[in-house]
Nucleic acid binder design. Structure first.
Lengths: 329, 329
DNA sequence: AATCATTTTGTAATCGATTACAAATTGCTG
DNA sequence: CAGCAATTTGTAATCGATTACAAAATGATT
């Protein structure tokens, strides 16, 4: 791989001139520009990002932190981020943290070391303290999960309201015994969705029963299967389920199918996220749709503004309740 | 962010000594080492990857190219890659190419520019010519999809054999009319799986009928639904389906369920990949299991060896047929 | 205390780019 | 063609690390 020095020699000019050609500086005569361009082509030269970044302190790379790529929820968000990034001549690097602090550290260092210009974090398990610290000197945006009262700009939806509306939909269908399959309430969205769930129940004077609230360890299908198994063993079984993610809801659906009961006739079920698979289940899954692509676009735009040094405001986007077969009993 | 210069000043030593401490060189006296370590802590210093990489021509970063993160097939492979990388103090960056040559280029440049030390490509649509060119001077490993007769080391399974066995299983169950839902045959795996399908049919003297072979554009669920819709409109309908990916098979399952037919009683179905969803469908899906985690581990090990300058040989791993409800008619 | 071997530290070049400033070239005018 | 302004090009410092080599410090031996 040739370097700028060799190009300069071949073209019979100085490295400064080559650099000017590379950066489309106006002050290069057509004649020398052509000479340099020929040399570049002949040597198959491409400028080193490393040298350039070191000098410029900019990489035009954006980091996207996510806990696990196995959750299809992130797919569309990433598309939105990527398209927006590319439109602004940035590129993205996906970083799977596996909720592992050591890995987080590595990626944080990439930011500190100017290997990347900014970061969008979608990892709810990320170390808040460290992220806040990083955000003091580097551009950081939170996407989907955020910090109440924190200082980092975020883009998200109103989880509480979405949960409230979902549960209200179940109540309107005549359900009085509604279970919640929640994830760990260390996550803000989990607390908010529980709160929306309870608000709806209260509004219709339905009791909030602890045994109908199940907390899963992760968001894998298997956790949903497990949750449903527990709920079906109760003396007083629920007639409807609200799960805080589609993966859990699909697991629950599986659990119900396995027990001989029927969805939606015996049990109605609502998920959250509208992942592509939620439309492939039998029956198809009623779910809350987050504007994932738009979230990605918004987060990327906010980050790019932030890199430019502009102030950015947090954004709350709209959601939709997508009614499908699993609540058409 | 402090630099090595400031640490040296604070500790009252030269930058060389600081660098030696950072790299655990033996020739530093305990006294000065402690001084330097104190200074590092006090200044909250972390070495710049940029400066270091520029000098060392090594980044300890591995690139993983994949066409789309929405395909769950890649999830486990990536886990294998990541764990292996970390065990060897490498890190990985996930690069979604979207089968877009421009994006590919960007990531190829990262390699050329020493922003990353090597690349594992899982993208069957990647530009072979360019990749081969890159592989002449940089470590490259192909994972899953590969090049027949190419020079780049790969890790994969025997797709032809797997398809042959899957179709033979359908034949043994008494099926005589077996359809193939294939993807675009520009992909090697698609040609191989078709070939295995045909070998099984021939062996049992069953006719190969073009109208029972459907080619999809992509591997999305929706493509499977569409394929099934076409197959069910045929005058002579198949009694069994072999789909070259679980996503297609799940889509097909959906298409069958929607038509009032029953799996496995009316139609048996086999997928390919054993993605986590395949166990969540109703009925659960019989499928060919690729040793995805192991593929990831193997590919990463091969790449790391290759970076070290060692010669590596291509590997073909074993697969399994996982028999579930969709073929238990 | 002088000598020499060994250990420890420092100096300065290097990686590949960018850019302020200086220097050279060009073009124009009288 | 001298003189000056405008344009074009080159020189050298810079970003932040590593490391060959030189220099200094330490310790052992006589």
């Amino acid at each position: 791989m040739a370097n700028i020095q060799q190009v300069a020699e071949k073209a019979g000019v100085s490295v400064a001139t080559v650099s000017r050609v590379l950066n489309h500086a106006a002050s290069v005569s057509t004649k020398t520009r052509l000479k340099v361009e020929d040399a570049i082509k002949e040597l198959n030269y491409e400028p080193s990002m490393l040298g350039r970044n070191l000098r410029n302190s900019e990489s035009r790379l954006l980091l996207v932190l996510l806990p696990s790529i196995s959750n299809p929820f992130y797919t569309e968000i990433i598309n939105g981020i990527q398209n927006t990034a590319i439109a602004n001549s940035y590129n993205i690097l996906l970083c799977e943290t596996d909720s592992n602090p050591q890995r987080e550290n590595i990626y944080f260092n990439m930011i500190k070391n100017k290997l990347a210009d900014g970061v969008i974090s979608m990892d709810p398990t990320v170390n808040r303290q460290k992220l806040t610290e990083l955000a003091e000197s580097h551009p950081v945006i939170l996407c989907s999960e955020y910090d109440e009262g924190g200082s980092i700009p975020f883009v998200t939806i109103d989880s509480e309201l979405a949960a409230y509306q979902a549960v209200k939909h179940l109540i309107r269908l005549g359900n009085k015994k509604i279970a919640l399959i929640n994830s760990d309430e260390k996550f803000l969205y989990a607390r908010q969705r529980r709160s929306g769930y309870e608000r709806a129940l209260k509004e219709f004077n339905l009791p909030i029963r602890e045994e109908w609230i199940y907390h899963t360890r992760d968001l894998e299908f298997q956790n949903g299967v497990q949750a449903m198994r527990m709920l079906l063993e109760l003396e007083e079984k629920p007639t409807a389920i609200f799960a805080v993610s589609d993966t859990l809801a699909i697991g629950a659906l599986k659990g119900i199918n396995g027990s001989g009961l029927h969805v939606p006739n015996d049990l109605a079920i609502i998920g959250f996220d509208n992942i592509s698979f939620s439309n492939m289940t039998n029956p198809t899954l009623t779910t809350v749709s987050q504007p994932m692509y738009k979230m990605g676009v918004t987060a990327a735009n906010m980050l790019i503004m932030s890199i430019k040094g502009e102030q950015v405001e947090s954004v709350v986007l709209d959601h939709d309740l997508i009614i499908r077969e699993s609540t058409m009993g």
